Simulated scan of single mutants.
Amino acid sequence: MNKTVGISCAVGAAFIYGFAPLLAKIAYMDGCNTITLTFFRSLISFPVMFAILKTKKIPIKVSRKDFFTLIILSFLGAFATGLMLYGAYNYISVGLTTCIHYVYPVLVALVCVLFFKEKISMTKLAAMGLSIIGLLSFLEGDLQVNFIGIALALGSGIAYAAFLVVMDKTEIKHLHPFLISFYCASVASVCLFIFGTATNQIVYHIAPRGWVLMFVMAMGVSVIANSITPIAVKNVGPTVTAILGMFEPIISVILGILFLKEAFTFRSVVGCILVILSVVMLTLERDKTNEKLE
């Protein structure tokens, strides 16, 4: 276990995920929709992941037990989470969607404590509390209620919490991260194609910029971020990975200000500071732990 690698991967994944709302919003302007975006994001990344596995000579075949666990993991992460999260952007704002989606760190912590008898340090609890307060600070002027959007955002948080717990509490986390991403992309592609075809929601007449954005999201989210998240879970556990994931909304807020002309208020500044402070607290706790081990 290398906590430095784990924290770096968790923050790096959050940074990449932070770009997703902006790219999705722009892709929607170019004729894309939720099903199409999620489907092509997974489909485009599939051959890339296959090529990486072949280049690194990583066997694709897994045991039957791991295969079924990967199916569940893929459905929760690449399919359900992405589908509901991107779907929520159609009904409520990026800020409100992000705040509701980020119920998942609390859910991960509760599941680990109640069902797996894990202990959470006061530092982690404080960091989680600061992060939640920071996220709530982003809600200023952003309270338009749409129950479909809220339900989708909440569902995405629940699905992602289950994704992190399953990854940590099964033997899956010992598989190569690229192999996990490969299966997630393949299963998500099949599920989304069936769902999109049945509902007639997959569109192909998309502006060139939209195709470019979907390719960028495939490489960034499906290939890189989805591959380093298992590394984070393996090295620092699902709770710390979930808390560090709250760095994502800071990126979303900054990008929204720069490209979507969203307001940047004093409360937004406070929210960013609190989330960053929670990351610093977890990093310092890591340092103290290393000192004790030494």
Rank of each mutant, 00 (worst) to 15 (best):
M1D: 09
N2C: 10
A10P: 09
V11D: 00
V11N: 00
A13W: 05
I16T: 03
I16K: 03
G18W: 08
G18S: 09
P21F: 06
L22D: 11
A24F: 11
K25H: 08
I26P: 04
G31D: 03
G31W: 11
T34C: 07
T36W: 09
F39T: 07
F40K: 04
F40N: 02
R41T: 11
S42P: 01
I44K: 05
F46G: 11
P47N: 07
V48M: 12
K54T: 10
K57R: 14
I60G: 11
K61R: 10
I72V: 14
G77Q: 10
A78T: 09
T81D: 02
L83R: 01
L83A: 07
M84K: 06
Y89Q: 04
I92N: 00
S93I: 01
I100L: 05
H101D: 10
Y104N: 02
Y104I: 01
L107P: 06
L107Y: 00
L107N: 02
V108Y: 03
L110I: 15
C112Y: 10
V113S: 06
V113P: 00
L114T: 11
F116D: 01
K119E: 12
S121Q: 01
T123A: 09
A127D: 09
L130S: 10
S131L: 09
I133V: 15
L135G: 08
E140M: 03
D142G: 03
Q144V: 14
N146M: 06
G149V: 07
L154D: 12
G155H: 09
S156N: 10
A159S: 15
Y160S: 06
Y160K: 04
A162C: 14
F163G: 04
V165C: 11
V166E: 13
V166D: 11
I172Y: 05
I172N: 03
P177S: 08
P177M: 03
Y183D: 02
C184P: 00
S186Y: 03
S186H: 01
V187F: 13
L192Y: 03
L192E: 01
F195D: 08
G196S: 10
A198D: 08
T199H: 13
Q201C: 14
H205T: 14
H205Y: 12
A207V: 13
P208E: 01
R209D: 07
M219A: 12
V221A: 07
S222T: 13
I224G: 07
I228A: 06
A232F: 05
G237V: 07
P238C: 01
P238H: 02
T239H: 02
V240Q: 08
G245R: 00
E248F: 02
E248D: 09
I250N: 08
I251L: 07
I251Y: 10
I251S: 04
I251C: 04
S252M: 05
G256T: 06
F259Q: 08
L260S: 12
A263G: 11
F264I: 07
F266W: 13
S268H: 15
C272R: 08
I273V: 15
L277S: 14
V280C: 05
M281D: 08
T283L: 09
